[in-house]
Design a protein around this nucleic acid. Structure first.
Length: 377
RNA sequence: GGGUAGAUGCCCGAGUGGCUAAAGGGGGCAGACUGUAAAUCUGCUGGCUAACGCCUACGCUGGUUCGAAUCCAGCUCUGCCCA
């Protein structure tokens, strides 16, 4: 059993757990920094260790195009290729079916792309995605899915979901036939629940995937432009049909309050580019909400970015951080990326502690109350 | 001293009679960003006004013209060349 629930919150669906993976055990709920190209942008792996990252992402589509999965396999997989020794989760490339929509065509067989690097035509299929991820040697591989757009009518959502289920079966078949590893070193495989905003489709998707049987279950097709209440509903419509003893992963989410809301709804794992992307664009997360560090108001502010900042960045004043951004200094991107990931990891660590000590609802509510308050100190 | 080129909004720079509060950059001020084609993208950036609009502006002064950043004269300053 790779996943074990340690404790549950009596008032919500939040739970604390341990996920044993080939390269280490992950405490849940967890936030996973995104490192699409086998690199969390701007950060040294030692810095990821410093801020307590337990697992990071890589992306099948990007690493397949460059440098190529065979090269990475020959270099010892992602762990041999990089210096990151803790778990990797690889996304299947399914999301790029959505995000690169202008460049692709979906068929039963798979997705034909004009790749974004040189425009050459390539075909990604469920089997190839699993093969690439096997070569990458990630701890968790995601199934190849179709992430439908928003809005999406029910007929298309149903059709898309049926395709995702058929692809899930093909992924499973490939793994059963080809996956060389077994036992504790085995790569885990997570199915992805789709169904857009339709409750019956979310239920159907979850049931079909559970019938096929996977190591964990993700909820996909969220954070594609839908309003926040639809995002929460998608989670609520899927979670009841997922097994208690398997990890649940909300893909691509979310803001700090959304993370807590989804932990309360029973989600264990999260990933999101937001902390690192907005960091490079000058936004720092704080207990009082996001701060645009480039703004004039910080020009003479001697305070650190946030009272909970990690010692690695807490010595830098807001005035200095603002200066670094205006001057175009790379250090600015690095410091805020580090800070924002620390903020997220601290957020979920706090949730784990709160669940363990039985005060998760209070933790969540007080965090959100302050975070969304309009008073900025 | 002579010749020559030039002087445009915070800066650089386009514009040679009306469509010009004046292209485009930069800078400045804001905003967006949710399984990363993102150190990216968007908006605003002379003054007053809620707005219609009014005023001020292309070195200075005067002139030509219905109308001038654009044409003419003089002046001031700057670069370069010659003495």
């Amino acid at each position: 059993m790779s996943f074990s629930v340690l404790s549950t919150d009596p008032a919500t669906s939040a739970r604390r757990g341990l996920l044993a993976l080939p390269h280490g055990t992950v405490e849940t709920p967890i936030f996973m920094p995104v490192g699409t190209q086998a690199s969390v942008k701007t950060l040294h792996p030692a810095e990821l260790d410093l801020l307590g990252a337990q697992i990071i992402l890589g992306n099948t589509y990007h690493l397949w195009l460059r440098p190529g999965h065979e090269l990475i396999r020959d270099m010892g997989g992602l762990h041999g290729f990089t210096t990151w020794r803790k778990p990797f989760l690889t996304d299947s490339g399914g999301f790029q079916v959505w995000s690169l929509a202008k460049l692709r065509k979906i068929t039963e067989e798979g997705v034909r792309f004009a790749n974004h690097l040189d425009g050459s035509r390539m075909m990604l299929t469920p089997e190839l995605s699993m093969e690439i991820q096997a070569c990458l040697g990630s701890d968790i591989a995601m199934l190849f899915d179709e992430c439908p757009p928003y809005p999406c009518d029910e007929a298309y959502a149903a059709k898309s979901l049926a395709l995702t289920t058929r692809w899930a079966k093909r992924c499973k078949d490939w793994v059963v036939k080809n996956e060389p590893r077994s036992g504790d070193g085995r790569q885990l495989h997570f199915g992805i629940v789709q169904g857009s905003v339709y409750a019956d489709l979310r239920e159907q998707s979850a049931r079909e995937l559970v019938d096929l049987g996977f190591d964990g279950y993700a909820i996909g097709g969220v954070s594609v432009g839908e309003p926040e209440h639809e995002m929460f509903r998608a989670i609520e419509n899927a979670v009841p049909f997922l097994p208690q003893d398997k990890p649940r992963y909300a893909m691509g989410l979310g803001t700090p309050p959304q993370i807590l809301e989804m932990i309360a709804r029973g989600v264990d794992m999260f990933d999101c580019v937001m902390p690192t992307r907005v960091a490079r664009h000058g936004v720092a997360f704080t207990l009082d909400g996001p701060v645009q560090i480039k703004n004039l108001i910080h020009a003479k502010d001697p305070r650190p970015i946030c009272e909970t900042a990690h010692p690695h960045v807490s010595g830098f004043s807001r005035a200095y951080l603002r200066h670094l951004f205006r001057a175009g200094e790379i250090l600015a991107l690095r410091l805020l990326s580090f800070h924002n990931l620390h903020f997220y990891l601290r957020l979920v660590a706090g949730a784990r502690e709160a669940i363990a000590s039985g005060n998760f609802p209070e933790y969540k509510d007080s965090f959100i109350r302050r975070y969304t308050s309009s008073d900025k100190p």
